[in-house]
Write a protein that binds this DNA or RNA. Sequence first.
DNA 1: ACACTAACCTGCCAA
DNA 2: ATTGGCAGGTTAGTG
Lengths: 209, 209
Amino acid sequence: MEGQSNNVSDSRLMKGVLDEQNSQPTMGNSESSLQQLFHKVLTPSDVGNKTFVIPRRYALKYFSHIQHNEEVDFYDSSTQSWRFKLFYCQSSKKFTFTRGWHKFVQAKNLKAGDTIIFNLCEIKNGTHENSNTFVIDVVKNDEGLSMDLALNHNDVAVDVDAAPNDEGLPMDLALNHNDVAVDVDAAPTPVLLFGKQIGWTKSKRGNEV
Amino acid sequence: MEGQSNNVSDSRLMKGVLDEQNSQPTMGNSESSLQQLFHKVLTPSDVGNKTFVIPRRYALKYFSHIQHNEEVDFYDSSTQSWRFKLFYCQSSKKFTFTRGWHKFVQAKNLKAGDTIIFNLCEIKNGTHENSNTFVIDVVKNDEGLSMDLALNHNDVAVDVDAAPNDEGLPMDLALNHNDVAVDVDAAPTPVLLFGKQIGWTKSKRGNEV
DNA sequence: ACACTAACCTGCCAA
DNA sequence: ATTGGCAGGTTAGTG
């Protein structure tokens, strides 16, 4: 348990590995970037049941391009790949990892209170298409320190481009400002995810330019 | 409902038979009592698979004294006995009847929508130990009437002592108020069933006397 | 094939 | 409104 290097900066190792796998010399951040997307402190349900609940705002922001029930590959810091099925529960409007998640919990011996960090490693191939890879970091809670504290003063995520600290923002802001997420127009339009309507865009008062 | 005697009050016949089998003169409810425990409308899975899912709250309340994998005898209204294996699935925390259940389904020609009613017949032997017997009633759904409606205005269960209508209660209330089920103390204690821990009692705020 | 077990998917509810 | 937690219907895996 001691020898393992499950600390926050492991994802940088992964980035280097991905750089090499991509047959590109690792020359710095111009070739690839590792962006911390979000993290979550695991709940008892996350480790006790077979499902991991993805905070809704991050699912909308980072996973909305993924098809319903698609199985997605993630890589840990040792380049091992894990495949999770992304499942959207219509009735509870909840995003979860189902198949594959429990195996990950057992393999990593995850407990409630541990934290997992989702990163996106973007590899810029130049002539080729850019390839993006999800990388998971695990932070054990063995020391009993608050993970939120640990995350606030670390130096983990290089190249956090857009919003380095979305976690602290109110959800409406986090959803509106960019990216894959809901683009709010004047009139409400259906919000589609995985090809299914999951809601409506809301015309926010006082938001028109 | 006319010719066939598969109606709700059949269990009273069973009670009389049990009284006689016990070599005690049937003198009224002072000698034995028939208590309706719970009922369930059969699902397609209950009749199509080989397993019957026991609603968790009733399993905890009425079957918690039964050992894991123990085979339990039930009697129908014609005094025929049926033996079901009681199985607790740890991973899904679910109680089921397995072995013996399918035979019962076939013999009674049960279909989804039919209802089975579990009763407890307590026989007071005086000098001897009291013997309790599970009695099952079957209510066919041939008439297409809603079983819940039928149950709400019948005169079936004599001697429903504790809570005649637990089905309508929120689960926490149903679990907490009495009987075999989880006895909630001030401090959380492990809930054991079949000798295995299946959870914890929760100290409910504002519940201390 | 069958019996048993585990897992997956969906829904509900309350904090 | 979100989501943690869990109940339960159904299906899949395993011996």
